[in-house]
Amino acid sequence: MMETIPILVSLPDKDEEVKGIFSLDAEVILRDIPTELLRDNLNKLCQGVATLLNDIKKVGGFRLKEVTIQVEVNAEGGVELIGTAKVGGKGAITLTFAE
């Protein structure tokens, strides 16, 4: 039996693509997401963030010590960066990368 983890997600409207938990007018349901799928998607996202930040060591006269990003899980178990302050915070997964 495949292990799953229950996650609240919002279902897309018929004309929209899959959305995560922050859709304002969408129906929110509890969905069992396979842990292996979630792990793989988080790993891909973290590898992408590591590549993105690889050369960013200094900002002006300051050394970059820590980066914090927030992600959400969509209805299919995909992991997406939260790119707007309007949706950030509520129910997000926070990933902190430290040197």
Rank of each mutant, 00 (worst) to 15 (best):
T4L: 01
I5T: 12
I5S: 04
I7E: 02
L8S: 10
S10C: 15
S10Y: 00
L11A: 08
P12H: 07
P12F: 05
D13N: 11
D13A: 11
K14M: 10
K14V: 15
K14W: 08
K14G: 02
D15M: 07
D15R: 09
D15I: 01
D15A: 12
E16F: 04
E17V: 02
E17D: 12
E17H: 04
V18P: 13
V18Y: 14
K19D: 03
K19N: 09
G20S: 04
G20H: 07
I21P: 02
I21M: 09
I21W: 03
I21Q: 10
F22Q: 06
F22E: 05
S23V: 05
S23T: 09
S23K: 09
S23H: 15
S23W: 12
L24S: 11
D25P: 00
D25K: 06
A26G: 11
E27A: 04
V28A: 13
L30Y: 10
D32E: 14
D32N: 14
D32M: 03
D32R: 11
I33G: 08
I33R: 00
P34V: 08
T35V: 15
T35D: 06
E36S: 10
L37I: 14
L38A: 01
R39I: 00
R39E: 12
R39Q: 13
D40A: 09
D40K: 12
N41S: 00
L42W: 06
L42S: 07
N43V: 06
N43Q: 13
N43S: 15
L45N: 02
C46R: 14
Q47F: 06
G48Q: 09
G48A: 01
V49A: 11
A50K: 13
L52N: 02
L52W: 10
N54S: 15
D55G: 01
I56G: 00
I56H: 09
I56F: 11
